[in-house]
Write a protein that binds this DNA or RNA. Sequence first.
RNA 1: GGCCCGUUCGUUCAGCGGUUAGGACGCCGGCCUCUCACGUCGGUAACACGGGUUCGAGUCCCGUACGGGCUACCA
Length: 469
Amino acid sequence: MVKVRFAPSPTGYLHIGGARTALINWLHAKKTGGKFVLRVEDTDEERSTPEMTQAILDGLSWLGITWDEGPHFQSHNKHIHQELSYKMLANGTAYRCFCSKDELERRKNALAKPEEWRYDGKCRGISKDESDRRALAGEFFVIRCRIPEGKIEWDDVVKGKISFDASQIEDLVLLRSDASPTYNLSVVADDYSMGITHIIRGEDHISNTPKQIAIYKALGIEPPLFGHLPLILGPDKKKLSKRHGTTSVIAYKDEGILPLAMFNFLASMGASLDENRCLTREEIVERFELQKLKKSPSVFDRERLNFLNGKLIGGMPLDEIRELAAPAFKKLYPFLPFPDDKAVDLMRSRARNVPELATTLYPFAADDFYYDEKTLTKLNVESVKKNFLGLIYKLSSIEDPSWNAAEIEKALRAYAEERGIHAKELIHPSRLFLTGKGESPSIFDLFEAMGKQASLKRLERGLNFLNAG
RNA sequence: GGCCCGUUCGUUCAGCGGUUAGGACGCCGGCCUCUCACGUCGGUAACACGGGUUCGAGUCCCGUACGGGCUACCA
């Protein structure tokens, strides 16, 4: 059975890249009927915090990524990892290195090209007896993995064949001088003990893979399958980072991005889904194929995320929209009543995110809004002063039960004809008075959704405003 | 510097030896119309370069260029 894992280190929020890695793993698990396990790589005690762990969990949950197992904490397995390194020491695939950091640094800098430094294997040849003796005597040491000669290669699930010459890989440290296990050791140990079948992670781990394969082999274990995902780039084609603005996935929640939109967006990077709408998670699972992922990196395109989000909002069931918009509205305007469904339904098509929708709902709840300056200056003030009292009178003559878009339109157009003016002369100012904006949905729908009383009140307010000013 | 990975419209995803190189986002224009959005119709725009292989190459191979990643007793 397929078993995959997402193994973040809790040293920061769940960022876009991590979220995508998690998502791909999740999709592959779902697609194959496998399991998705969550493992927190908290072995860096300096930088790991419980808050960050929680933040990552929250991020995943928000996206709708659920885990079948875990979260496991890598730090809990420390002693197992230590034992493993001693096992390697015993079978000769690892050895003690007594070089101090300073000494290593010195040797490195002594090189003509220090940047080409790799551990020189100085302690490789120390005999077992001498090694034991020095260790016993209390000398500090690290345990390093003995990388055998030859090639280390694997068939990457997404990239294809990748090959490293062992000479390029240094004898990496397995156990530090404080006896704490190193990342590569811990990862191998945990992946093995958890029965992980596919290690799907970011491309930035490619160079770790030969090291880990070497450890698997030293331990006499068959390595799992590896798949390395291309990174997500910023608009400048560099690895996405804080410099590019928001990278924490959860921050998009506050920007009004819906989890499903983000899910679609992330799933579509490097994969071909239906580009034109938001799919359900199930549909995405159906279309997903690990082997078909693109090998080259993608640029994070906020425009497309927005598009997807807008599509999602436009096509959602009304009650779902209300549930999203109501809290957002409450947050913006704590003391105002939330407008009814008619208003929500009317305004949703032009909103690309939730806060935007909430903002446009304001005129339905209150009438103290400002008028858009630009639209105001374009207004034919004289015409309004001349005609609006009559318009208000005309509209007020519509009986309450007949207050609907069709009737209102009939009345307004009839009135325009009576006065010998174009309907636009009434429509545009009405729009401004009703919403404060120069653009809105159909004015007649607006009248209807707002209700007779509120509509007329807003028209009066507008007229008074112009008369006063 | 070394090693590894990559390279189709501005962005994104198709294309898997024979296509007028397609779809989407963005942008521009038309339609709809009371405005904006939606929708719809149309337009813009790409195979990094050079060599091979082949009757034929975006598609296969090799170089070059460019981009990216890694190069810790971090993960």
